[in-house]
Design a protein around this nucleic acid. Sequence first.
DNA 1: GGCGACCCATACTCGACCGTATGGACATCT
DNA 2: AGATGTCCATACGGTCGAGTATGGGTCGCC
Lengths: 192, 192
Amino acid sequence: MDPSQKPERTRLTAEDWEVAALQMIAEQGVGALAVEALARQLGVTKGSFYWHFRTREALLQAALERWEQYGEREVLGQIEQIADPHQRLPELFRRAAHEVQPHRVYAALLKALDHPLVVPVMARVSQRRTEFLNTAYREAGLPPGEALNRARLTYAAYVGFLQLNFTLGLPRINHEEFDAYVEHMIATLIPA
Amino acid sequence: MDPSQKPERTRLTAEDWEVAALQMIAEQGVGALAVEALARQLGVTKGSFYWHFRTREALLQAALERWEQYGEREVLGQIEQIADPHQRLPELFRRAAHEVQPHRVYAALLKALDHPLVVPVMARVSQRRTEFLNTAYREAGLPPGEALNRARLTYAAYVGFLQLNFTLGLPRINHEEFDAYVEHMIATLIPA
DNA sequence: GGCGACCCATACTCGACCGTATGGACATCT
DNA sequence: AGATGTCCATACGGTCGAGTATGGGTCGCC
């Protein structure tokens, strides 16, 4: 009757492959995005895949597009609702620090910047985010000349943190220490 | 007579393979480190390689070890000769900003943190460097609690900058603008 | 109830790359 | 000169994963 009650529904759609691809990327990296591996995980075979997509690269392309559009709505949409410009940046830092899942794909894509398909995507996303930080810093009172550089510095610190403490498992900083680090970032990077 | 005058000397040594491997890593990434490709570049065949190394992983291991030891002498050795602790950090920033070649391998290894062999190497190197920054910040007058967090922040900014402006080719910042960014970093991160 | 459109399984080809086996070229030493 | 050790070429086997070919099964629709 209801076709969407069984978790093992056999018919798949292109969207299913894309979200599975993103999950695989988040867990194993772009290099591990293999057709047959994904097929096994979805309970089907390659025959299914090559009906929905022309090639492996096409799936990667579609998955990246989906991720880029999703990230735009999610990350920036929440923050723009904070009215006070002086509270906006600290709040952004604290929220971004306590999320986990959205950063997984981003960190995985940082390790795949040798792949020609991910470079333009990451370039666009990073560009938009630093531009967002730029206006936020200007609204917080920083002169235009400094605001852009501060935005670059802030976003670089974010990216570097991901690599050092997320991908790499540096001395696995604990919770209290991590909170202290975030507050130190806020005190150092955000003008009073 | 002199066996080392011809640039096309046919006999190779294990060291030759290691430096060629590092060059290949810097240009194409760890994933492109293929035995036959390297052999072609060196003008020999696989037969040579498997005389010097037992496996492909052994070459990678040896190349990483060489890079780690070389980097230790080069990067940190220069800086420790600057006497005044208050001039040490700005000088470090400016020197590191205007080098190029030493960062290429590091940036390439950042994109290979999924490989189990490079993770411990990068962990050690990053750990030592932030520890170095930590003592430098303490000597510059920062209280111990803040010094470590500032060191983490600084090194994260360095790593992130590599990814965003080196690997990724973000709006290809020009020279003057880049110098302004470095000075902004100094003004923001280093206590007066 | 038959006819498409849609979705998937099976079986195969093909290329890239790792590793092995084996013999040859060249130097040095005795 | 001959023996030995060092360095490399050639040829082969084996794996893994992408992409192709082709047929079968299921659902909706006239």
